[in-house]
Amino acid sequence: MSVLEIRDLHVSVGEGDDAKEILRGVDLTVRSGETHAIMGPNGSGKSTLAYSIAGHPKYTITGGSVTLDGEDVLEMSVDERARAGLFLAMQYPVEVPGVSVSNFLRTAATAIKGEAPKLRTWVKDVKTEMSGLEMDPAFAERNVNEGFSGGEKKRHEILQMRLLKPAIAILDETDSGLDVDALRVVSEGVNKSREDSDVGVLLITHYTRILKYIKPDFVHVFVAGKVVDEGGPELAAKLEDEGYAAYVKGAPEVASA
């Protein structure tokens, strides 16, 4: 049982006079087994929230706290956060030339588990998960994200989530740029993790489309750097019909998503 607690989180980008506050007091609690959807218009700071939790150096925490089971996440380095059980599926996964997917996955699994996984079971696990995500086995010998299509990148992110088995997974606009087929496959991967593990999911999205496949327990509306409304799945239905107009009124855009 894990709990990710975000309290009054303030985050800015830039230095000195150019510093710009993007998150303005975010409160959120994600527990094992729960699926939370964060929905908001472009520029509301959704991705900033995701990257701040993961520890991207671009963002400066100016106030508030993030804890995982009471441990101070903000004090941890990026890799320590991952080893503590956090996982971020990125919107724009980075190409790493010359590093094969299989080498990368095994290095990551070794880091997370603290010891190299047994070759035999590992190979089988990777194969099984890849086939579940309808990925060609040849994929494993390609360089990380290099020349991947949008759909391949997202499948690769979910493949990592499946293999690394995080306590809390943050999915940053995993649905963006996917065709219906890829969206279905990726969603099935996420749902499988929700069924066969106790993972807590923080699903960040601009559209309601992915919520047809991944049913959230809680929906949070995110505008101008904080949560402005909360509810159950019915809130997503309302957003589908009415959009963000009611929330955005008077709230200036603070950042590009």
């Binding site: 990026v78 890799d79 991952a82 790493v96 030339p97 590093v99 080498n103 990368f104 880091a111």
Partner: peptide, 22 residues
């Protein structure tokens, strides 16, 4: 690239070597 690798639990030194090796 370093952030991506580290976000998967790989320590910075190993990540650096992976990137250069790659």
């Amino acid at each position: 690239q370093l952030f991506y690798l580290c976000s998967r639990g790989i320590d910075a030194e190993t990540a650096r070597r992976l990137v250069v090796r790659g």
